[in-house]
Structures are given as C-alpha cells and as structure tokens.
Design a protein around this nucleic acid. Sequence first.
DNA 1: CCCTTTAAAGTCGCTTAGACCAATAAGGGA
DNA 2: TCCCTTATTGGTCTAAGCGACTTTAAAGGG
Lengths: 246, 246
Amino acid sequence: MHGYDKHAYEPFAVTVDLAVFTLRAGQLHILLVERGQDPYAGRWALPGGFLAPDESAESAARRELAEETGLSDVAGLHLEQLRTYSEPDRDPRMRVVSVAFAALVPNAPQAQGGGDAARAAWLPYEPGARGAYGPLAFDHDVILADAHERIGGKLEYTCLATAFCPPEFTLGELRQVYEVVWGTELDPANFRRKVLATPGFVEQIPGASRLTGGRGKPAALYRAGGATSLLPPLLKPAPDATEGTR
Amino acid sequence: MHGYDKHAYEPFAVTVDLAVFTLRAGQLHILLVERGQDPYAGRWALPGGFLAPDESAESAARRELAEETGLSDVAGLHLEQLRTYSEPDRDPRMRVVSVAFAALVPNAPQAQGGGDAARAAWLPYEPGARGAYGPLAFDHDVILADAHERIGGKLEYTCLATAFCPPEFTLGELRQVYEVVWGTELDPANFRRKVLATPGFVEQIPGASRLTGGRGKPAALYRAGGATSLLPPLLKPAPDATEGTR
DNA sequence: CCCTTTAAAGTCGCTTAGACCAATAAGGGA
DNA sequence: TCCCTTATTGGTCTAAGCGACTTTAAAGGG
C-alpha cells in the first residue's frame, strides 16, 4: 500500500497528551489542566498540544512537559509513549489522533499555568474511583487509567522506580514508590534484600545518611544505578482473597 | 493545550503499519509486500495503509490484516498496538504519522497480493541480521525489530503463545512457539510442568492425540484456556553466565 | 529513662525453576 | 523381527528465591 496516488487519504490533526505522575506527601499525584473553553469547559484534562510540522511526537511531548511543569531539565525525566488514541468521535469538533505519553517527575515544583490562561494543578490520583478532579475531558479518563496501569506494570520488571526519586534517596523512599503506585504494602526487609541483590539497580553513596521522617535510625543514601531491566522481576503481591478491600 | 483557535496546527497523513508474524516449518515468518513505485521501489515493506475518515487505527489495522493475509476470520486474531512512529523525515514525500501494530497468525495461508499490484510474501525473519528481504523501506526495519521484541517480551508474562497455534495443538507445538520466537531451547518436561501448573493457560481435550512429526509418542491435544496473564511469568533463559546481568 | 519509630541484618520454611533420569509409544532401518 | 531413534510423559533432586518473622542498631519524644 502506501501508494498515495492510488488511494485517497484524509488529513488528521495530531496531538500529544501527557499523563505526568509525581509523588507528593506519600501520595501519587497527576498533573492536570483546567479547560477554559468548550468542549468540556471547566473540566480537568491531561496537558497536551498539537504536533508541530517539524517535530516528532516525542519532541512535542518533551516540549509540552517542560512548558507545563516549569522544570528546566526535562532531558533526564522518564518519558514513555503509551499508545495512540484514534477513535473517530473522541473529539466532538473534528478528527484528532492523539499520541499519549506517560511521564515521571521526581520532585514536583509548583504547577504552572501553560502558555495560555489554563490553570494547572497537581491533584491526587486514586486508581479506582475518580478523585478530586471528577470526570476528565475527552477520553482522558481512559488514557490516565492506561498510564497508571503501564507504570505499575513497568515497576515489576524494570528499574523505573528510581525515576520517581530525587538524585539521592533512601531505600525507604524507593519502597514508598512501589507502595504508592501499587496501593499495597511491602515488607521493608525483603524489599531491601531484593533491591540490593539486583546488580545495577541502586548504588550506595558511601558515608552518606539521612533521616527520613525525623524519626528512626538514619538511612543510607543511594543513587540510581545503570541497570534498566529487573531480572528476576519484583512481582506485585497478589491481592489477598480473604480481604475484601480490593 | 487543545485550543484550536489559539494555536495553528498542521494536518498530517495517518497510516497504520502491520508486523504480522506466523510460524512456518519451525521458523518465524513475517508478512511483507514489495513496493512497486518510488520511494523505495523494489524494496520490501510492512503492509499498511491510510486511515479512513470514519475508522480508528485498530479498525484500519484489522481491515488491512484481512486484506493482506486473505484470512476470513480476522476477528479472533491477536492484534496489538505497538507504538506510533512520527519522525518528521520518515517519509521523504510528506509528513506521515504511522501507528504500528503487531499481529499473530496461527496457520499462514498463501500470501495474497493486496488490493493493488503489490506482491506479498511470507519471508523468514531472523532477529539479528537482515534476512532474505534486505533493508526494508522507510523505518520499517525499526518497526519490525520493535515488534519482535514486544512479542518476545509478552510471551514471558502473558498466555499470548496460543495465538500462534491452531485451535488444537500439542504442548510440543506450544513450546516451539517460545523456542522460535526467543531463539532458545527449552526443556520439554519443565515447560510442560510450568504450563500445566498455570490455571487457564491450556485445557486438555480428552481422549485426543496426534503425532507431531511422524515420529515419537503421540501427544495429547490441548486448546487455549481463558487466562490472559501468566503469573508467575515464564522467563526467557539468560543468554550465558559470563554476563553479570543476572 | 523508657518508649516508639525506622533501618539494617539475619533466620526459617515453603515454593519453584532448572538439571537431570526413566518409562512409554510411536516409526524407520538393518 | 529386533533394535534404534524420536518425542511425550512422569518423576526426582538440588539450589535459589520469596514471604514471614525475629533481632539489633540508631535516632527522637514524652
């Protein structure tokens, strides 16, 4: 196929949508912008924007990420293409094909309004029920749920969790990433053994330590190692059948 | 920011590209079409086509899959969105954004030419070096490599392997799927134990048996079960102990 | 001064993956 | 016919890993 002179083709508008997660006060947060105009005026939506003629979707996503978060060094942030949403009726005005990305930000600064007048905020994300943001605009509820599932899955078999942490972190903070994203609790001792047994996951910073919550024994500091895959994987514990909370 | 009246946007051509895999004579094969016109005239390419105004990328991909393979029941075939390729220079003529899919076909019929005069063929796929098809057109070498990596990864933690098999298959045939896609050998007894220990992976057909290669003991027949995830995963064996990645 | 809190380190038992070995049931060749 | 080969099926054994648990260390609070 790909014969342009033999087949008619329709032009489409192409956008990128970003699901930007961060950890704040021990809770998973998502970056959202408030729409100021119809359709879905007043509703929250994922940040995003149109693809420029001379950039790839990855470039556009990273540009939008810098604009919306106000961070200066978005080069090192984890940005991952989720999938492309192309249902014909997903935008009531016109045909829009959107390439969705998931991004992880370690320490979230204040949310910036974008280039235009839209209001931006970090809002706590709760997987099952809709949180404080209500139903999102367009199909962004689906995109957001897909993004969270992807992140949770990648924690199992990659070293992605360090992307949520600042350059220097304790093993307790790293464990909190798993606990918050998965919504479960992990045994601190077993988690420590598993992480340290994986070569290249983390590297200890010699002689450095820090108190995490003002209490308890000071914890050693680590930085992210060079490994990217986590073998064997760190599997999310199966939900207990006797417990009805899930 | 999704404000159409505030930002200019460029229209793009949107296509779907398909990496269709099958097993033939104990070897992994990929469905390719030969281009009849420039650019890349005479080169092999992945089948694909333009997105129609009223269909999603998934619909377009399934439509193309039916056209190119000549199969009548593409509804049950596994079709999975890979990612979207949007580099500005990936098509020398114009700006084309392509949504790539990976598909698995159990028993490949003869390759059909598409609706146009393009020649289609099943060609053996070899992961590392380029096979009998030489360098593919556009960025399709990258797409094909990404598709193979995705399929190989999904075999580890899903029950996807049955999608390569006909409705009734032996455990040896199922094991061959893993061996061919991964390029490794698996112990037949351990593979059998692992598959049968996973509830819902396969169901035995009572009393049925078949000779696989004309030799050996007849094997019991199974059909695909209802399970979709494979927990704990069936990990691909590490290449060698000389590397420190495990 | 004792209590709580968190980190760090070790122990115990169960499960499982990987490496084997053996028996069964077919076809092929001498 | 009698082995030999091939492939399935079933079994054993061992080392590794994981979950549950205990213990010690190092900090702050009442």
